[in-house]
């Protein structure tokens, strides 16, 4: 049984023009010990899924799901107290933008120390506990590769460079020793060496501590080698999900294929200086979503049936939603 299991998650935003389905029947699972990649162009709703999981969405939006469970417990039906406990100890989140996710009026050290669960610190007197908190904080920032802990722990968020901010967000997530880490675009804008460092850290944590990771990114290259499974998102709909190696070898959904084709390193047959195949157009805005399959207007394989939303079909543990999938003609 998967640890995090989300089925038909739908998020509706109410605006003056009517209701918009920002997420439409999204399916996502994360099993214990796996690294799952959640990919999609920017604007496809990845961050919204992350916020939905941690319950940080504005209450005026309506969130429904057939199932949204954490270790068998329904996340949506929990009391806020239970939900908070889950977020405090079991699930940790690295948000996309460190600069806005940190309180501008508190130092990094204060914010890191308040994330340390009180069970981790013993001591009769508060100064003993404060000292322990400090020690934990320092060792955690070292772990994510921040060297000058003295300088950075007493700095305010606006005083640090953004890659330190991102590493620091990771440190804040790891300090509570969670079982699931959700990382929303943690390597965005990092230079390659730092990026490799972070990816290595994630792989190591996954292997040594069997930390499950939901790795959200629009950068296929970064995650293709490290993740076990992948879910592809397009305009708020899950289009395909399955084992990384299956999808890489034989994508069933036209969008996944286009996504893979546009990453040169996945293609061995590419002659030098040839054009990269891409699909025309760009991701639709929420105000102008096409009906049926949201890829429809851009899809090279689209036919009349595509004005109906395709149902999820499944072959073993590989699922896709498309009326005319690739590689299936022979069947």
């Amino acid at each position: 049984m998967p640890m995090l299991d989300i089925k038909n998650l739908t998020l509706e935003m109410h605006s003056s023009e009517g209701t918009i389905k920002a997420l439409d029947k999204v399916n996502l699972t994360v099993s214990s010990g796996e690294i799952r990649a959640l990919v999609g162009e920017s604007g496809s709703g990845k961050s919204l899924i992350v916020s939905a999981i941690c319950g940080a969405l504005p209450s005026e939006w309506s969130l429904t799901a057939d199932r949204m469970s954490w270790n068998g417990e329904n996340l949506l039906g929990m009391s806020s107290q239970q939900r908070r406990e889950v977020m405090r100890r079991e699930i940790a989140v690295v948000f996309q933008d460190p600069q806005t996710s940190l309180d501008p009026s508190a130092t990094l050290g204060e914010q890191l120390e308040e994330s340390i669960p009180s069970e981790f610190v013993q001591g009769r007197w508060f100064w003993q506990r404060a000292q322990q908190r400090k020690k934990i904080a320092i060792s955690t920032v070292h772990k994510v590769g921040i060297k000058h802990h003295k300088h950075y722990l007493s700095a305010y968020p606006h005083q640090i460079p953004s890659d330190i901010g991102q590493k620091f967000m990771i440190a804040m997530a790891l300090v509570s020793q969670p079982t699931l880490l959700i990382a929303d675009d943690p390597t965005r804008g990092m230079e390659p060496t730092t990026k490799t460092q972070i990816l290595k850290l994630f792989t190591r944590l996954n292997q040594t501590r069997s930390l499950s990771i939901l790795f959200v990114s629009h950068d296929l290259l970064a995650i293709a080698s490290m993740s076990h499974t992948m879910t592809v998102l397009y305009a708020g709909q899950t289009v395909e999900s399955g084992k990384m190696k299956h999808i890489k070898k034989r994508p069933l959904h036209p969008y996944t294929k286009a996504l893979l084709d546009s990453a040169p390193s996945f293609r061995k047959d590419l002659s030098p200086k040839s054009h990269l195949p891409t699909i025309a157009g760009s991701i639709p805005t929420l105000q102008h979503l096409p009906i049926g399959c949201r890829l429809g207007p851009r899809c090279p394989r689209a036919q009349r049936a595509c004005v109906q939303t395709p149902a999820v079909r499944r072959i073993h543990d590989h699922s896709y939603s498309c009326h005319y999938p690739l590689h299936m003609e022979k069947l």
Partner: peptide, 18 residues
């Protein structure tokens, strides 16, 4: 209350008073 860092603090499981 609508700043992203409040949402981030909520998702870290801090209590309402904290």
């Amino acid at each position: 209350r609508h700043q992203p860092y409040i949402a981030a603090a909520v998702s870290r499981g801090l209590s309402g008073w904290q």
